[in-house]
Nucleic acid binder design. Structure first.
Lengths: 240, 240
DNA sequence: AAGTGGTCTAGACCACGGC
DNA sequence: CCGTGGTCTAGACCACTTC
């Protein structure tokens, strides 16, 4: 009998998993040849179409690259541009230690811009969370997040000074974040912000307004961030 | 006999073409149900797997959306985020008239940062092109582009005050632009820039450094742009 | 229960690249 | 020439959604 679904996992997924595993283990490096469709079919005891499915969808994911008449190769890992990351994740990817100080965390009901961005009724109760972000001991950014207070009740008591807001949302509230639409411009530091960030008054700051959506297409978060221009650089890729 | 390849076009492509056609004709609108795999297989006289292939790859392209147990629907067309556009195209998409004044256009050989970004030898000759960008009669941005003088000889004499640089490159030099890697931060206006853009000295400006690649993966352009923060907003989408 | 998409088979032939 | 990926068949059963 053929090895069909084991534990409810489709065969093609198992094959993909096996390939991913050897890549992560470093046994296959970018440019290396992956077993051909026919080889994989034999190895995993599946039909050609199934082996093919595994490779084809790995290709659309960008894990491998296929060349007709030649073979399937490990793709050179692309840098993850335009990737929505939590502050903690961003710092981690730059191997800096992230730190964060909560300046404000309360439910309020008179934030017009926030309720509008969150697609809530004008005077809805929202949780406002203002945090000063550190990296390597230096103040980096001032971030103010807004969430629907109704949807995320009890959040302010969570250990946000220790854990990433993204993680908390994903673990405790079962929301999976999917993407963010962001507006980027420049502004000058007002006295309080300058003081907090340790920069001169009227210094130029990068301002990013993020509206973050869940996988279900619902707005979860609105974040207004002010970033020290000398410490922070937004890196993006755009396509023609 | 089954209708296999006609004119060398694979059957699944023909099916995709047929679906795209009815979408473009407006006969099917976003949210509308597409014929099911089984229906398509009958209509086009192909096997289920082929009909399926057609739909599956239309889904990865974002043309349709499939829901198990329900059906395949026309996807709502996505807004083109993270799209690399020329200044002219950007203005056009906001229905503003673009204007541009060339401040400087000469070949120089002492631009270290530019040669580095263009992946050229340190003292290579580069064409430096500084342009003041207008929109609706108002100054918008100051953009300085650098190109390899060797590769694009004769470019400065082109009618850049009339035609987009992107168009000129694509038509006269046979380069097809593919994507750009960009670094975004904030800076303050120096006296000359402030004067040119009509803003106060030390006003906050959005600074974008673009390295633009061709479809062949070769760096074509380096653009340093300074944008009036009150007139310009970078809009991007990031994914988790 | 009926219809949908999701997975899978055990083959087949074609188109392409490199030797 | 051989091995690769690309297309395709004529079915099958499963999982899911809707009624």
């Amino acid at each position: 009998m053929l090895a069909k679904r084991t534990n409810g996992i489709p065969a093609y997924r198992r094959i993909q998993g096996a390939i991913r595993k050897v890549i992560e283990a470093g046994e296959l490096r970018p440019g290396d040849l992956v077993a051909s469709e026919r080889e994989l079919a034999k190895i995993h005891n599946v039909s050609l179409m199934t082996a093919r499915h595994a490779l084809a969808s790995l290709e659309t994911e960008g894990v491998v690259e296929r060349r007709r008449g030649v073979g399937t190769f490990i793709a050179t890992p692309k840098i993850h541009f335009n990737k929505l990351m939590s502050y903690t994740e961003q710092m981690g990817s730059r191997s800096l230690t992230a730190g964060s100080k909560i300046l404000f965390a309360r439910v309020i009901d008179n934030e017009e811009e926030a309720t509008a961005r969150l697609a809530l009724a004008p005077r809805s109760r929202v949780l406002k969370l203002e945090r000063l972000r550190h990296g390597a001991g230096q103040p980096f950014a001032l971030e103010t997040c807004y969430l629907s207070a109704g949807q995320f009740s009890g959040l302010q008591s969570a250990q946000l000074h220790k854990e990433s807001l993204f993680s908390t949302l994903e673990r405790d509230y079962d929301v999976e974040l999917a993407y963010s639409d962001e507006e980027v411009d420049a502004t000058t530091a007002d006295p309080r912000t300058a003081e907090l960030l340790g920069v001169p008054k009227r210094d130029a700051l990068l301002r990013i307004r993020q509206v973050i959506y869940s996988t279900k297409g619902v707005v979860i978060l609105y974040v207004l961030g002010l970033y020290r221009s000398d410490r922070h650089n937004l890196v993006i890729r755009r396509y023609r």
